[in-house]
């Protein structure tokens, strides 16, 4: 470890930071599921919120996505993916659950 450069050390600490946050954000939803302290609806909402936070943590610490230093092309790419996801996933769920409700 004595041969490690400063830059490598910063990088390693970032991975450790990301890993620590990821462990916390994983253990809490598993504990909520196993413990049964919240009602299922509240537990589901908490799991969903923690998942979104954890995805952001992984993007920042593991995929090194730095939103302050990102190129315009990458912003467009991410925004376009977001729009497609919103339309296709949101649209599918809307149509299918609406259909499901009407078939009851």
């Amino acid at each position: 470890m004595s041969t490690m450069s400063d830059h490598a050390r910063t990088m390693r600490n970032d991975y450790f930071k990301g890993f620590g946050l990821a462990v916390l954000l994983t253990v809490v939803p598993f504990a909520l599921t196993a413990g049964g302290w919240l009602s299922p609806t509240h537990a589901l909402l908490a799991i969903a919120a923690l998942a979104v936070v954890q995805i952001a943590v992984h993007m920042i610490y593991f995929l090194h996505l730095d939103l302050r230093a990102v190129t315009d092309e990458k912003i467009v790419m991410l925004a376009f993916t977001g729009i497609i996801l919103f339309l296709m996933v949101g649209g599918s769920l809307w149509v299918m659950f609406d259909l499901g409700a009407r078939m009851m």
Binding site: T26, A43, L44, I55, H58, L63
Partner: peptide, 20 residues
């Protein structure tokens, strides 16, 4: 690392709600 992100979705949408 992307595969790990997909897995977050899998345990949050498939496994945990399934057990709940």
């Amino acid at each position: 690392h992307f595969l790990d992100i997909v897995w977050i979705g899998i345990f949050s949408i498939v496994y945990l709600p399934g057990v709940l």
